[in-house]
């Protein structure tokens, strides 16, 4: 890497960066800034508010704070993230990667086969994931899950009607588990084996090794995945919208669906933008944590 030495270098830097920065600036940064500005107006998609948005001060935010639906939507989203992203993806993903990893006195067979299977959902588009799960979780007796229950004389369960939240959480685990396992498997592959061998020699039990050797060393990878999946799951829209459109009632109305409904079903862009700003502020916490963890590499 070389310092910028003359005006030609400077021009190259600016000129080469400009298209990418313009694209990102116009379609990601500017909407966020615009959202902050618009959140102080009564702008809407139709009617008087669309033609002449007026400055309404903190009115949108006052509405946001008072809005029961938003509050319950945020709590629901936090719970969704905890259940599906933190427990379902991170904890299960780590445990499975740990089981699959080779270490002194522990070596399972057929691991490449399992690894190939576990990676399958990773690139599957959210709409296809939702569609296949719609078939699995069909509420009639012919749905596959219910047929499985039928063999033990249970069910049928109306998964997407009576247990919608649990069902979409499981679908999110299905979709995100692969990525967790891919990252953790790579982390274990790069794990210094001598450290474990030394710990074995020194008589550390497997659980001691896990707690006192493996977890501390893999902490950065675990945290990076945790931050990423927290942010991603907070922003989920399509996967859940496809399956339930937020229902029944608003049982699965996570914040992404809430924002969509406010802006595009009730045509209240100003309020939807304000809710978006709130989501941005919430995600800033794990977002900055993620950037700090990745900082060494810039």
């Amino acid at each position: 890497m070389r310092p910028v030495r003359n005006w030609r270098d400077a021009l190259t830097v600016v000129g080469f960066l400009a298209p990418a920065l313009a694209l990102v600036g116009l379609f990601i940064v500017w909407p966020a800034v615009w959202a902050v500005i618009q959140s102080f107006t009564n702008r809407s998609l139709t009617g008087a508010g669309a033609l002449n948005p007026e400055f309404v001060g903190l009115e949108n935010y006052r509405r946001l704070v008072r809005d029961e639906d938003l509050r319950s939507s945020l709590l629901r989203t936090a719970w969704f993230v905890f259940v599906s992203a933190i427990v379902g993806q991170t904890v299960v993903g780590f445990v499975v990667a740990y089981l699959m990893a080779e270490r002194p006195g522990w070596r399972l067979r057929f691991m490449p086969v399992f690894a190939a299977i576990f990676v399958l959902p990773l690139a599957v588009p959210e709409t296809v994931a939702a569609l296949t799960w719609a078939s699995m979780a069909n509420g009639t007796e012919s749905g596959l899950l219910n047929r499985a229950l039928g063999t033990v004389d249970a069910g049928p369960v109306r998964w997407l009607q009576d247990h919608a939240f649990a069902t979409v959480s499981v679908v999110n685990v299905w979709r995100g588990l692969s990525f967790a396992m891919v990252l953790f498997a790579a982390a274990f592959a790069g794990f210094p084996q001598q450290v474990l061998e030394a710990a074995t020699v020194d008589g550390a039990s497997p659980s001691q090794q896990l707690r006192q050797v493996i977890l501390p060393i893999l902490r950065p990878q675990i945290l990076i995945f945790l931050m990423l999946t927290t942010i991603t799951s907070f922003g989920i829209f399509g996967l859940v919208y496809f399956l339930t459109r937020g229902g029944p009632g608003n049982e699965t109305e996570i914040v992404g669906i809430y924002i969509y409904n406010q802006a595009f079903r009730f045509f209240d862009i100003g309020f939807g933008s304000a809710a978006g700003v709130l989501l941005l502020l919430i995600l800033l916490v794990p977002g900055v944590a993620y950037v700090r963890l990745m900082r060494e590499q810039a």
């Binding site: 379609f27 990601i28 922003g235 978006g276």
Partner: peptide, 14 residues
């Protein structure tokens, strides 16, 4: 890491 859901409403207007 900003999800599109957070900025979709203003993005539509822009």
């Amino acid at each position: 890491v900003i999800p599109p859901t957070a900025t979709i409403a203003p993005l539509y207007v822009i």
